[in-house]
Design a protein around this nucleic acid. Sequence first.
DNA 1: TGCTCCCGCCAACGC
DNA 2: GCGTTGGCGGGAGCA
Length: 397
Amino acid sequence: CLFSQMDVTCVALRHLMSPRRSRMDTDDEEEEENVYMEAKRTTPQKCDQTSKKDLNADQVHITPSKLQDRACGDPLTPTANLKMLISAASPDIRDREMRKVLFRPIENESDDLAVDEHDEVLQHEGTDEFEKKPSRKQKSLGLLCKKFLALYPNYPASSKTISISLDEVATNLGVERRRIYDIVNVLESLKLVSRVAKNQYVWHGQRQLRHTLRELHGLGRKLRYHLQMEQPGECGPRAPSHADEPAPDGRKDKSLRIMSQKFVTLFLVSKTQTITLDLAAKILIEESQDMASHSKYKTKVRRLYDIANVLTSLNLIKKVHVREERGRKPAFKWTGPVDFHSTSGKWCSWFKRNGQIEMLRVSFFYSPGLNKLNLLLSSGHTAGGLPLSSSTLPAIA
DNA sequence: TGCTCCCGCCAACGC
DNA sequence: GCGTTGGCGGGAGCA
């Protein structure tokens, strides 16, 4: 019902193939907001699974260019023989061969077509008999997240709803859907997206980010995270962990989302706004009563790396190192908004005084450090244009 | 060698 | 039963 009243913009596959055009369609002003751009893209989707299935196993293993080079009937070279054997034994190599075969004609077809990360790598692989696998950086969650974010405007117009189909995004970015879940869960924790249906999310961008950060900051204070930051493990009576936070969707899992929120919260309540993963993991493990298990610690750290990668892509944190007694430790520093907690606003009211309608303007802002609400009473005007006497303001206040 | 984190198994969930 | 979702940890890349 909600969406029926809105101008729904579905980000379909055709949009995803040309993100720039897609964004232009949604909001011209936001065109330049997303910094990450790929040099070139192709459309692996054109050679979809169907076309792969149409090939039989023998066709899949053939490398056309080599066959063309070879005189008809020539025996295979020893290297080619070896490659074929390895290909037959390794599904990964076989798949790469298949992609190479399938995508070559399309890459040559047009320069405007999109390239995913794997194809970029293929283009740079040259003519090595054993082409290199994409590096870890090229396959990193952070890079994938940047590509994901580049598809959508940071501040979409509130009148428009941008739908996200996980399937289409996964296909377009050339990754398994499992990886998209990792990204989406972190984005969801900051309300950059929200789930509307199976496989369907809505993109909000950073419209609500400051509000979300303010909420998390308040939650962090409530849960005494600021005390744990100073003395992990000795924070006195611990606030009930998320006792007031209903499990989203009634599921006990979604821990990545919860962890992400807690991780961000730690930054928000931290004086230095710098946190080592070690400390974050310890605080988070302590909450879940898993202190005894070293494997739980390792798992938490793994997940924190995942979350950190996504947050880094969002430019909310950056990796740094902190010096400690036993050398330096990797850490992350908050680089996101810092003025989110300064709640401010203006208020205006009319009242009748001595038969005249007068106006009072009040500006207010909250200083969390001082825990004070500051009020500024500015001299207003009567409806007739006469200045409001400053002597009356204290009485009015 | 330790940090980093990709990868995919598999179980819970929900339709 | 089957597709979706996501916890989890092995193990490999990388500095």
